[in-house]
Amino acid sequence: MSERTPAMDGAGGDQDRGFELPPELAIDTDVARRVMADFIRGQLRQAGFERAVLGLSGGIDSGLVAYLTAEAIGPERLLCVLMPYRTSSPASRSDAETVVERLGCASEVVDISPMVDPFFEGQREASALRRGNVMARMRMTVLYDRSVTWGGLVVGTGNKTEALIGYTTLFGDSACAFNPIGDLYKSQVRQVAAAIGVPDAIIRKAPSADLWPGQTDEAEAGFAYPELDRLLFWRIDKRRSTEELVAMGFDGAWIERVDRMVAGSEFKRQVPPVAKLGPRTAGVDYLYPRRRPGAARR
């Protein structure tokens, strides 16, 4: 076994690193990369696929997954689909193109405006929420279509923080065949992204769903990721009570608000329940691995 000091990336501190990494969230990025690479290869192999496809937004989550997937199976087996809407920021597009260029993977640009706009024709009053959801689900539709033409599985790009607070669109950006980064908090995504070489500009910019110009996650939800990551880590991973969290310095009202977001989005993290009627019911008392012997595509 290799005895070595833990890989503390950017050990020079938050200033040098360009982002804040709470110390309790720091992970060994070498081990993490190894686990995620084996996971990606294992998922594809068990399903009988050699290729993968993902939606590349220009943000850090999908950027990291593109790097991880390219590292795991080779860039020639990866298709990155850029799916801008007419209001998407041009900077996102160019950041995504930088990733494609650096990785040397296949890419395709699919403008989703001609799919989304007719959907809302005559509905000027349609809220940003509805529009955002439809955009996310159009992108999912495109990805699952390219899954057929490219012959690859759709790789998920959602992180643990947004999954826990429910900042995702059901059957939209959360839809995938498997997700290598779904157990990484946003701060940890940044740490691994820095270690694997995702361009600095992508790591440092403010996270955004990019549904309208100037939108940022943190402004919209009123939190800063490192602090939210810390709260979720202590609350969920380390099972701390409200009293203990308050004693650690977290604001009581904020804890309550985040708790509500987590509880209220439980349904987004689970497979929909089926009414139990027969002797054996999928997910209840019919329990098999997702990939059974003989199930792999030949």
């Binding site: 076994m1 005895e3 833990p6 890989a7 720091a26 992970i27 060994d28």
Partner: peptide, 16 residues
């Protein structure tokens, strides 16, 4: 199963 990836562990993995 490996879990608890922390930078503070001797081999980067709590289980190990």
């Amino acid at each position: 199963p490996g879990r608890d990836l922390a930078a503070t562990n001797e081999v980067g993995l709590g289980t190990a």
